[in-house]
Nucleic acid binder design. Structure first.
Length: 553
RNA sequence: GGUCCGUUGGUGAAGCGGUUAACACACCAGAUUCUCAAUCUGGCAUACACGGGUUCAAGCCCCGUACGGACUACCA
């Protein structure tokens, strides 16, 4: 069989050769230890935590080595293409401030020299490589239709042998040239398959940057390189693109470990030097005591939109992801609480080998600490962006008086305290926690500790004695006086020593006033809240509570 | 079914042959002359999946078992 003839028959219009492409995409001018990383999502419309997890690792490794980080869109499966998915990908990475040096839709002053970065636009390139493989006898056209393949698979399953297209099952492996020619002329649809010469009984040791030394068997599957529509499969596109784009470390999910033998054989067949491989562990979650992979359908927290909608700060999410990504990050961050995460020396070999369990509590804790370090002005801007993006109609409620908001945030964050408070987790939670300051969104649900009549008496006594000019001490003295009046312990120690002598304690009395003013049992310092609210609003609130207690509302 | 990967406390996770197995989160208790989800102090846990083996010595090496996961598509 004349392979050159076959190659020309299959792809008469492809004139460029791999050598041409080698010239078009020369080796990158980078330092020796610079790493070229890439993230290659397929535009299915769903971008998840795992994508960010990988992207963050890619970005750190590339940039801390003065390398390159690029975005490639793997749109080879036209059945799964979703409109607008690419925009979602870009905007999500943008929100989390993951910066690409080049790639799809990336603005780059130096030019995107290794594009196009959409695989559909690279069809000629793949076909040129496939043609070359055919010419070398390393690939061949296959005319088996899906029905035949399906039957074959069923048969293999019945025989309990490995399924697939290999060895004696690869019926198109040695077709007669004349037959192929006739088929082509009859417009029969075909795919291009690799002519594998591996033996799965042979095992090799392979070094994965994350997993360490692993065992891989040789591939013997005549995998499809180009599908009937001329578009490559993931495997072939990967072996061509990551070579031409000069990726130095292929970092991807561990679900690719199983197909690594195919990729290894492909790189060899194409005569492409092997990049390093790093297979990341899966993000897991605890579900009814079982550790399982996060699933798109069951776990809303897998979607990055979830964090965006609640208003988690992108940097906080990234810090959390870093703790999952590199086990020594957390300790470093504890020692360098104010350093930018880019100052951390990221290492691939310090990535976890087993599935990291996603822990929302920990994310929240990290988020609290992170936000507590911000200045109230920054928090305000952050809230502003959030409200603008998610609930623009409320802009006026929260931001019409920024000085007022700033006072609220100062108190809420405890900026005047020796140690700041860590109550704020994400934007929507902050807004909910300060809603009581704003009449338009204030919706109290009172839950008083004392019975109705006592609460009324306490609130009335407080109003009767209220003087907005009182300082904290004077204010508190008045509370004590009211307490004494109703046989409530004014001193906590007295109460503790003899609880039966009183009907309650000063803390409980304060709670009544706190609930009456804010609708909450837990708030920052009450006196300060009243100072911020101003006299008129305080009295309005107290009367509102009285009305409710008296059944007038 | 086959191939590969994994298994340290409630959770993340260090330790990679040699004292009481770090650290963090969560949790619990006490403290805090107003609460608290904040802060301080203290504590907690039947943690090295199981069974063999190698060794003076094993979470760490070897073998097997169990369990979990991934792959096994003209999907990525």
């Amino acid at each position: 069989m004349n392979n050159q003839l076959l190659a020309d028959l299959l792809y008469p219009n492809i004139t460029k050769t791999p050598a041409d492409y080698e010239n078009i995409y020369p080796k990158r001018a980078l330092d020796d230890n610079a790493e070229v990383m890439r993230i290659a999502p397929s535009p299915t419309g769903f971008i998840h935590l795992g994508n960010l997890y990988g992207a963050l690792a890619d970005e750190r490794i590339a940039h801390q080595s003065n390398g390159v980080f690029f975005l490639r869109i793997e749109d080879t499966d036209n059945k799964r293409l979703v409109k607008g998915a690419v925009e979602t990908i870009i905007s999500t990475f943008d929100y989390f401030k993951i910066e690409f040096d080049e790639g799809a839709e990336v603005k780059n002053n130096n030019g995107n020299h290794y594009g196009p970065y959409y695989q559909r636009q690279r069809t000629d390139i793949y076909q040129a490589y496939a043609k070359d493989l055919v010419r070398k006898g390393l690939a061949y056209p296959c005319f088996c239709d899906e029905e035949h393949l399906k039957q074959q698979r069923t048969k293999q399953q019945e025989l309990k042998i490995t399924t697939g297209y290999y060895g004696p099952w690869a019926v198109c492996r040695n077709l007669d040239f004349e037959l192929i020619k006739a088929n082509i002329e009859a417009n029969k649809s075909f795919v291009i398959r690799l002519r594998s010469n591996g033996d799965p009984k042979i095992k090799h040791s392979f070094h994965d940057e994350i997993k360490g030394d692993i065992t891989v068997i040789e591939n013997d599957q005549d995998v499809i390189l180009l599908k009937a529509d001329g578009i490559p499969t993931y495997h072939f596109a990967h072996a061509v693109d990551d070579h031409l784009m000069h990726t130095t470390i292929v970092l991807r999910g561990e679900e690719w470990l199983g197909t690594l033998p195919i990729h290894l054989e492909l790189f060899k067949a194409l005569n492409h030097p092997l990049p390093k491989f790093a297979h990341t562990s899966q993000l897991m979650k605890m579900d009814n005591g079982i550790k399982r992979k996060l699933s798109k359908r069951k776990d809303p927290e897998l979607s990055l939109d979830y964090y965006r909608q609640l208003g988690y700060h992108p940097d906080a999410v990234k810090i959390y992801l870093m703790t999952l990504l590199n086990w020594n990050f957390e300790e470093w961050f504890l020692k360098n609480p104010d350093a930018d995460i880019t100052a951390f020396k990221f290492s691939v070999n310090k990535m976890g080998q087993s599935g990291a369990l996603f822990d929302l509590d920990k994310l929240n804790n990290i988020s609290k600490t992170f936000l507590s370090k911000k200045e109230p002005e920054e928090i305000m801007m952050y809230l502003k962006n959030f409200v603008q993006e998610n609930d623009a109609s409320k802009m006026d409620i929260y931001f019409k008086d920024e000085a007022y908001l700033l006072q609220i945030l100062n108190l809420g964050m405890g900026t005047n305290l020796k140690k700041r408070r860590k109550d704020y987790i994400y934007a929507s939670q902050i807004l909910a926690s300060i809603a009581y300051y704003f009449d338009d969104v204030y919706q109290p649900s009172y839950d008083f500790i004392f019975d109705k009549s006592l609460c009324i008496k306490i609130i009335e006594a407080f109003i009767a004695n209220y003087d907005h000019r009182d300082d904290n001490a004077q204010w508190f003295d008045k509370l004590k006086a009211i307490a004494t009046q109703f046989n409530i312990a004014a001193e906590m120690n007295d109460y503790k020593n003899n609880p039966d002598a009183y009907i309650g304690n000063i803390s409980e009395l304060a709670e009544v006033l706190r609930v009456a003013t804010t609708g909450y049992k837990n708030t920052p310092d009450l006196w300060s809240i009243m100072q911020i609210m101003q006299e008129k609003r305080v009295l309005t609130r107290l009367h509102q509570a009285l009305d409710t207690l008296n059944g007038k509302m």
